[in-house]
Simulated assay, not measured.
Amino acid sequence: MSLSVEVETPRLVLRQWRAADREPFAALNGDPQVTEHLLPLTARESDALADRLAAGIDEHGWGFWAVEAPGVAPFIGFVGIKPLAPILPFAPGVEIGWRLARAYWGRGYASEAAQAALRVGFDQVGLDEIVAFTVAANLRSRAVMDRLGMKADPGLFDHPAVPVGSPLRAHVLYRIGRDDWRKPGAGDGNLDGAVVAAA
């Protein structure tokens, strides 16, 4: 199903990527605190990732949107949903992910945007389930997934894109179904400052 979606929340706009987003995105991806649990990216690799995410939005009408905070900053990172990479052992499906610049942690932006992205996935796209995954040691992101109302699968999986022997290879998988998301109180926790890897 294709949509033409630009998502607005009380404080944020989730939108298609712009050329001006590349420089702050590369800076975000060069911040060791933001990328503590991610494979490092060069500026060129960061630009290529932005191009892939933009192409995914063009294709589907939804994806990992660039996030703007009007009156605060024209670009603070990305939040959204996108199809899983085929190499993942639990593909096909759709993942939710987010990555915000450190300067915008602590303001509740991730919570606001992630809930909007889930709403698009379940109410507009019609998905039955959305998953998230992160490095097993990334306790901050795992807590975020809990607050979204997601539940962890037992055990771990090795991310096939991460080199064997890397401490970032072991990942945990979380899920939330549409029926659980609709339950009163589901996902009402405050998501903030989380970093979830994008494939």
Rank of each mutant, 00 (worst) to 15 (best):
A117C: 13
V94Q: 08
F64D: 02
R22W: 06
E36I: 03
M145G: 01
V172S: 14
G149C: 09
T9R: 03
M1Y: 00
A186P: 02
A161C: 07
V195C: 13
G106L: 12
E36R: 14
S141P: 01
H37P: 02
V7S: 02
A19R: 06
A199Y: 12
G187L: 05
P10E: 02
E68S: 10
L84H: 10
D21K: 14
L148M: 15
E95L: 08
D179Q: 13
A91E: 06
L12D: 07
R102L: 15
A161K: 14
A73G: 03
A91C: 11
L12A: 09
A137F: 02
G126V: 08
A161T: 10
W17R: 00
D58E: 14
F64C: 08
P70T: 09
D31C: 04
L139S: 14
D188H: 06
V196R: 02
L148S: 08
T134Y: 01
W17S: 00
A199V: 11
I57L: 05
E112D: 11
E23K: 14
T35C: 11
N190P: 01
P167T: 05
L49K: 13
P83G: 07
L173C: 13
V164I: 12
R175C: 09
A69T: 00
F157H: 15
L148R: 04
S166M: 09
G177K: 03
H159V: 10
W62I: 02
I130E: 09
A198S: 10
V120R: 08
V162M: 09
A20I: 01
G93N: 14
P83T: 09
L156I: 14
A85C: 13
D146T: 12
R15T: 02
A132P: 02
V34A: 13
Y104E: 12
A198L: 12
A114H: 01
Q33R: 09
V196W: 04
F122T: 05
V164T: 13
R22S: 13
G106D: 11
F64W: 05
R169L: 03
R102K: 15
P86C: 15
E112S: 10
R52V: 07
F25K: 01
L3R: 06
S2Y: 01
N138S: 11
P24E: 05
D47L: 02
D180W: 00
K183G: 03
E23P: 11
G177V: 02
R11I: 04
W98G: 12
A197W: 14
I76W: 00
